[in-house]
Design a protein around this nucleic acid. Sequence first.
DNA 1: GTCTATAATACGATAGAC
DNA 2: GTCTATCGTATTATAGAC
Lengths: 198, 198
Amino acid sequence: MGEKVAARAESSEATRQRILEAARHLFTERGYFNTSLQDIRRESGLSIGSIYHHFSGKEELARELFYDTLAFVESDIRQIYAGYAAARERCYQVVRHLFETTESFPEVMEYVLYFKHREVLPNEKPICASQPFELIKIIIAEGVAAGEIRPMDEVLASATLLGGPIRLVQLRLEGVLDRPLTDYLEETWECAWRGLAC
Amino acid sequence: MGEKVAARAESSEATRQRILEAARHLFTERGYFNTSLQDIRRESGLSIGSIYHHFSGKEELARELFYDTLAFVESDIRQIYAGYAAARERCYQVVRHLFETTESFPEVMEYVLYFKHREVLPNEKPICASQPFELIKIIIAEGVAAGEIRPMDEVLASATLLGGPIRLVQLRLEGVLDRPLTDYLEETWECAWRGLAC
DNA sequence: GTCTATAATACGATAGAC
DNA sequence: GTCTATCGTATTATAGAC
């Protein structure tokens, strides 16, 4: 009896994930507005009714995917923060992680990067107020305090650190760069850190 | 007679511009997919029929706006290229121009930056193959040849130069930065150039 | 060239059987 | 929980008067 419930719950969760995966794939491939629920139904192999049973609608699918991914990113940065003490090392690991995630899960990276919050989820707060972004600012502030990073506006510092790397990620996702991002890691890091270091 | 034709042509061109301006305003405010032709009709004060007389449809409006803006940007960069000889000065002027355009014409900047080519105009070539981008690469290549810029991949160099500044532009457009970008110009330039310079 | 009225369609969402 | 059938609506685009 308990088993049956567990099995049902498992299968229900599996169904949820199937729907989310289908949605993520289609949203990143052709965009949120170019994806209909019929498309998601087809891709997931389920039915419209089943999708509406698990989610309140298309917008909730986008929201769910977005916050899942944000939590994923945040947990990774938090681990980096805990695992390294120096700002230089922490920043390097953040850039390295950004590049590796792009190569391993391009769809995930594409979803967070190209997600137009104001269009799809206009009532959510902007991504720069999110926890990953706040964590980066803390890393930088501690780096300034430790004399590793030149004193400057925190927002400018985070833009300097991640602006170049994020642009490379975008170019890679657009197919402009043939070689994997990890090939560019050391050179990119050199450029980014020169912008910040004392 | 000739006057009448000219007057008609003028008014026709004026109508075109009114439609384009309405479209640009709405596209940047709420996004391409959240803007209907009815919205553009209302905002422009014209009629659906008139819009279809001047443009083949909504997509052509987006395309027209996009290439207009790209040409505008390209001409400005070309002027900078012609007006300055040193790579350092050219790059500085590009960043300055980026910031000033953002403050003077935020809607224009928002349109090029947040325009999702793959979603709205999936059959157009990516922006990185556009002329402004090519011109930046030339500036950098000449800077490397002149010994002003460290030898490195051209794509990486342009990402290093513009990545940080473009992120600041985005943050400014999102309302995160209270002060105008020009207040950040010198500090931003310092960071960007440190990443490139020998 | 500009307009109104309308056609044709695709969409998100719901109802109700199983 | 999953499904099919369907509703109501909003959209792009066209037709045809002026």
